[in-house]
């Protein structure tokens, strides 16, 4: 079994969001970066569990980004995985990124590709579906549970208005969310061994970009909370009805 987990670097969930260069770039100064939580807690940890259940499993991680991503990739390797591949590009275009991942996957013939359900910065939730289409593989999105028997996966997923249990023969692409696994803190042995695990850097292949970020903007600031005395709940209801006009 060969598994590939796609990982991204994102600002910490508590990071202050601001922009520079005439609102065309995210202001990275002073921002702490983390492994995208969906990639880490759900995709990576579930893949590690599969490897623990079958030690013959080969587990690779892939990231598309610049050298500044290496500490985050090492952190992922400290949690688990045999080696990492970084495609050396800073593109933000989903199709371009998916094309790079698909190219590596094509060469290595993975049985299973995991992604997080989305990144917490660009919230695209597109990479999994795009990689599946590029590789002509089945795609199961928003998985909450995953089990494997031989070459057949049983996956629970969210669909509109409910849940569904799917059965699919590998190879396949799966996007992972809450329920797949529980967060793991890397231990000292993991951190030490991550230093010597291979982190291969490959140059991107030629691919189109479909989109481009023209600018960013922040939402208008809230006017501030209007506090209503606890003994006047009717006043709250009146304001919601007459002022906010939401009920």
């Amino acid at each position: 079994m060969k598994i590939l987990v796609c990982i991204s670097k994102t600002p910490d969930t508590t990071a202050k969001i601001a922009f520079t260069d005439n609102n065309t770039k995210f202001a990275e100064t002073g921002v702490q970066f983390i492994l995208n939580p969906y990639d880490e807690w759900y995709a990576l940890v579930r893949a590690i569990e599969l490897k623990e259940a079958d030690p013959a499993t080969v587990l690779h991680l892939i990231n598309v980004g610049g050298a500044e991503n290496d500490p985050i990739i090492r952190k992922a390797l400290a949690i688990g995985g045999d080696e990492a591949i970084r495609v050396n590009s800073n593109s933000h275009d989903d199709f371009y990124i998916a094309s790079q991942i698909a190219e590596v996957a094509r060469q290595k013939n993975y049985d299973l590709i995991f992604t997080g359900k989305e990144t917490i910065d660009y919230n695209g939730s597109s990479i999994g579906g795009m990689v599946a289409e590029l590789l002509n593989l089945p795609f199961i999105s928003l998985a909450t549970k995953f089990s494997l028997e031989g070459n057949t996966a049983t996956v629970e997923r969210e669909i509109e208005g409910g849940e569904e249990v799917d059965v699919v023969n590998l190879p396949a692409v799966v996007s992972c969310q809450k329920g797949m696994a529980e967060q793991r803190i890397p231990n000292m042995r993991g951190i030490m061994s991550a230093r010597t695990k291979p982190l291969k850097v490959v140059e991107p292949v030629q691919a189109d970009t479909f989109t481009e970020i023209a600018s960013f903007e922040l939402p208008p600031a809230k006017a501030g909370v209007k506090l209503i005395p606890a003994d006047q709940p009717e006043e709250l209801v009146r304001l919601l009805h007459e002022e906010a006009k939401v009920i």
């Binding site: 600002p11 969930t13 969001i17 922009f19 917490i120 910065d121 660009y122 919230n123 970009t209 479909f210 989109t211 481009e212 970020i213 023209a214 600018s215 960013f216 903007e217 922040l218 939402p219």
Partner: peptide, 15 residues
């Protein structure tokens, strides 16, 4: 579009 989990917007050009 909404980005940074609702904390900002991006204006994205489709080419």
């Amino acid at each position: 579009k909404s980005v940074f989990s609702g904390k900002a917007f991006a204006n994205v050009s489709i080419k």
